[in-house]
Structure formats: structure tokens, C-alpha cells
Design a binder for these strands. Sequence first.
DNA 1: TTGTAGGCGTTATCAT
DNA 2: ATGATAACGCCTACAA
Lengths: 337, 337
Amino acid sequence: MNSKLRTITISDVAEKAEVSKSTVSQYLNQRYEYMGKKTRERIAAAIQELDYQPNFVARSLKQKKSTTIGVIVANISHEFSTQIVKSIEDYCNASDYHIIVCNAEDDPDKEKEYIDMLRAKQMEGIIVFPTSTNINLYLELTMEDYPLVFVDREVPEVNASSIMLDNKKAAALAVEEFISHGFSKVGIITNSTDNNVSPRIERISGFRDALSKNSLEVCEDYIKSVEVENVTGELDKMMRLNEPPEAILAGNDLVLIEILRFVKQHKLTIPEDLAVIGIDDVSFASIYYPEITTIAQPTSEMGWKAAELLLNRIKGGHENRRDTHRFTPTLLRRSSC
Amino acid sequence: MNSKLRTITISDVAEKAEVSKSTVSQYLNQRYEYMGKKTRERIAAAIQELDYQPNFVARSLKQKKSTTIGVIVANISHEFSTQIVKSIEDYCNASDYHIIVCNAEDDPDKEKEYIDMLRAKQMEGIIVFPTSTNINLYLELTMEDYPLVFVDREVPEVNASSIMLDNKKAAALAVEEFISHGFSKVGIITNSTDNNVSPRIERISGFRDALSKNSLEVCEDYIKSVEVENVTGELDKMMRLNEPPEAILAGNDLVLIEILRFVKQHKLTIPEDLAVIGIDDVSFASIYYPEITTIAQPTSEMGWKAAELLLNRIKGGHENRRDTHRFTPTLLRRSSC
DNA sequence: TTGTAGGCGTTATCAT
DNA sequence: ATGATAACGCCTACAA
């Protein structure tokens, strides 16, 4: 019955409602001010009958606005990413903006492709979990005054806002928790798929500072940055030292899992044989044996802020600024320390 | 230095290269056939110098194609969803298609909004993890011959392909594993945020069938569908029965966590006090105490197939068909049973 | 209060 | 081999 051979345009509606295209356009854009009630009703009826759906593509072309932003996550597999995305989405929904989510899979080339694609599709701005190797690309964007916000990592060279965890504080919270339980030989393992990732560096640096501040010795053998696959190997070396660490801080969720794998393989007991704290709260923290003490990131607030900054930047029209917003981590004290 | 006050269009390139817009367009679309080498080089140079980026929006408007599909997941928090999305993305990348990911948050209204949005943005098709309450909406889409593929759940009324787990088999695998370990009093808990979700129904039905086939009694008290928050409560009731179950199948990852929470709270031992199997493999399965036996879904294959079906549907132009593709689950035998 | 005309940036058709 | 011209569907002056 419904022969949808041709797409229905604003002209069809105009014809059916016996008004001009402009009037229909006014109607669609809620500019009812000088519009006769009758006209309004006729248009509404026509839209209904024809099941007319406005074409955003045409609208974007004309208005040079898409009311859509792009979000590029470094790796969608991290719970952290999906939580942030959810929160960005919430904020955007409330502002009638849409989001497009892309997964760079920790690959700078993919990231570049996505950035190009998003711009070609006229996204009004981008929120990106950057892979610090595309610095020149980011610089280009900011030079062109393209709205850009970083999440999780900052890129010092680039004039854009960043949403970051207070990573030093996160490490310090963990160190202090270890110390309060009487541990003095504490280590940290982070992963390092990327070259120059600021959270990793900051967490290690915060770790050192916290030890020093508490007059504890920093033992270099207890500090490792390795690929996820090598975590158990490095930990093995560490535990075979004459003086093995008593406590380990896991730099993120994936490292935590590897540490727990090692502990299980070697039939160690937490926290007696090795105390553990993980940065990033994980789904199983409270049901594990023992329950895992974690340092949680306020992902909702972080995603919210990222979206807020970007949309203000887009609407307000001011320039990209290089300001870093630090969020405070929370210690979730459980039983692994 | 780079005054990007005006966006650079194909006309600018044409002017600079001293050719017409049409020629540049040819070039952009790789139709070099009748194009002089010189011209080609001049155009390439002009594009380079001007840093010209084609506008996909204008292209879409003209071609009525966006080379983009939409993916609406029921809830991005499930690992299952992100794995499928990754796999869809891989397939699409290889076919030069883009994807837009949307998160319906198990909310039919949100789902509807997203479907409307995606269509307005001229997505060429949609892959959706459906919330079976928008049946009429799906029907409309198929009536208009709009390419549509379902994942995880099927909607019997609608003519579209579905990618499904062989849920009955999944339940049967678990039941047989329980039986092989000598358990005869076995139960199942699934969750039910939605009204009429086919995986849940099929898993329960497969569970019943498998018990019957093995001449075991089906005890209704051992079969529950409840909200996630009520899992521990229901399990409590179940375990207080005169004859409590010896083994429980968790309908998905979230239910599994709740069951493990209950076990922990009540200081039970797995599998002695209660054997457990979970549908959906979880990140912590192999490091838990004990290791959790799970039924894994072949998410890569499922996402791949979903994308393949949709893109063939788009390119091939044939009609939507109602065919369900069932994928075989795998038992990952560990120690919780 | 509503209509007319032109253009957003691209591609397609048809000349040349 | 390349160019002129007319769409694609919508919005926005400006005119009426």
C-alpha cells in the first residue's frame, strides 16, 4: 500500500498542506510566531499522513552544522571507556546533540582515519582519548580552531582542554594505604602499549613522590612498565629478588588481572604474601577472594565535564584553551591490602 | 598563517589546478580513465597545497548514500556488546563502511529516538540489539525495505535476519556438564529487565528440555527470572527450600556476579555447596576462586556475520528476509562445577 | 503571515 | 579528455 519508491521531501509536505516549502521549513524549526493556526495544523497533518522524516544531511549541508560530535576511545574494551562514553552521551542528549563513537583500538593510524572521517562528516567537535603519536594532527586541528577535548591523557603541545584523573593522587592514595597497613616494600606495575602515555608516567611519578614523602626508599626493581603479556613474567622476577616487594599497585584493570593470575598460579595469599591495590574499579572487586581494594575514577563526572567543555566550546565560540581538569580518585577500601 | 576563515571546497581546488569542478570530482572518485597525467598531477598538487578535505555531507546528499551504518546496542555495559561492536567495525572497515554506535540503555524510547536519528542521517542500514517493544517500528522499517539486522534477540513478527546464540544448546551444555558431575538438582536464574526477551526464554526452555531428555525432574522452584537486584534474594529463598538446588546456571554475566556475591555472603563453597556455570565468558573467570566454568558466545563470528548480512543486503539490493542464524556456544570447562 | 529565489558542496549527464 | 549545468533536500533573506 505504501509505495516508498521515492523519498518524501519537504516539497511533498508543502504541496499536500497547500503552502510553500519555506512555511513548512519554518514549522519544522519551531518558528511558529507568525504562522496561522490553520496552516500549522494543515502542515502537521500532512507530515503525519506522509510520514515525512526530515533529511538531516541536507539540513547539515545548508546550516553547516550537524549537531553531532565524535568520540574516539583508545580502546572500547576498557570499562573505563564505556563508562565515560555513557556519560558523554547523557550530557549530549540533554543538549540535543548526537554522538558518534569510534574505537581506535590503540592504533594511531586508525585514530587518524577516524579523525579525518569525523571531520569529513562535519562533526562539530571531537572528544578523543589520544594516542600521543598524532601530535601534528592535533596541532592542525587546533590551528584550524576545531573544537577538541582530550580525555584520560593530555598532550602538552596542544591547545585543548584535557579531562584527567589526578594520577599522582591516585598513586599516593594507594601508597598511603599500603603504608598504613605496615608495608614498606611496595612496587608498581603499569602497562605500556604506547610510547608516551601521560597517566602511566604520572602514576609512577606519584608513586615515587609518595614513597619519598613518607621517607621510604624507592626501589627501582619494584617499578615496572611492561606489555600486558609480560606482567606475570616481570612479577615473577620481582618476587624472586632477595627482598621481594610486600605490596603491588596495579596501574590499571588489565594489569590487575595479570597480577591476580600470577598470585593464583603461585598459590600466594593476598594480602599476606602480597598486598594488592588496583587503579580502576573492576566489576569483580567486591566478590573476589579477598575483595580487592581499588582506586576508582569518577567516570560520570569526567565524561560529563568533557562533553560540557566541548559543547561550550562549540556554542560559545571561544577558542581552544589548554586547560587540564583533574579529577580526584577515590579509595575503595576492601581486603586486598 | 593559515587563514581558515572559509572552508575549502572543490571549486577552490578546481581553480587552483585550472580545471573544472567536474574534473576534480572525477579525480576524487578515482575515475582516472580519460584523465591526462598532467591534469592529475596538477589536481593532486592543488589538493595538497590547499589541504582540501572533501565534504561527506554534500556527497551523501547528492549520492543518497552515506557508506555508514548504525549500530544500536541494548546496553553498552555488557562485554558482549563491545565485543560484537568491535567485530562489526572490523568487517565494515574492510568494506569501506563506517559505523555509528548508539547505546539504547535498555530503553525502548531511546531506541526509537536513535532509529529515527540514524535514518534522518541517511544511514544505509541498522544493526540493532532489539528491545522487543518497538515491534511496530521495526515493521515500518521493513515495510519500507530499510536494511535491518537483529543481534542477540529475534523479533518473530519482523522480516529481518537475526544473529543469535543457540541458546537452547547453551543451556543444554550447562545442564549436561552439571549432570556429568553428578548433580541432579539444578536450577537457572536469568534476569528480566525486558518483557519478552527471546534469549532468556530460550535459555530457560533449553534448560527444561535438557533436564527432561536426561530423565531429570524439572523443579519449578529452581527456575527464576528476576531483576538483577533481586537475584540474591531469590537465591536465598531457593537455598532455604527443603531440598535446595545443588547447581545453578547463571543466565548472563550480571546474574553470575550476583550469584557469586550470594555465595560469598553466605560463605558457601563452590562447587561443593553450590556448583555454578555462567553463560557469557567473563574477564575474571580464569582467576576466580575457583575458576568459573562458562559458556562462551562466539562474539567475533557473530558480529562479523551481522555486518556481512547487512552489507550484502545494502549492496545486493535483495529484500529483507526473515532468517535466523544460530551460533554454537562453547563450554569452557573450569572448576566451578 | 506566506512565497520566491538562491545557494550549501558535491556528483551526474551530456556536451564539446 | 574536460567542462557546463542541473540536481540532491533544506534553509534563509527578502519580497509580497
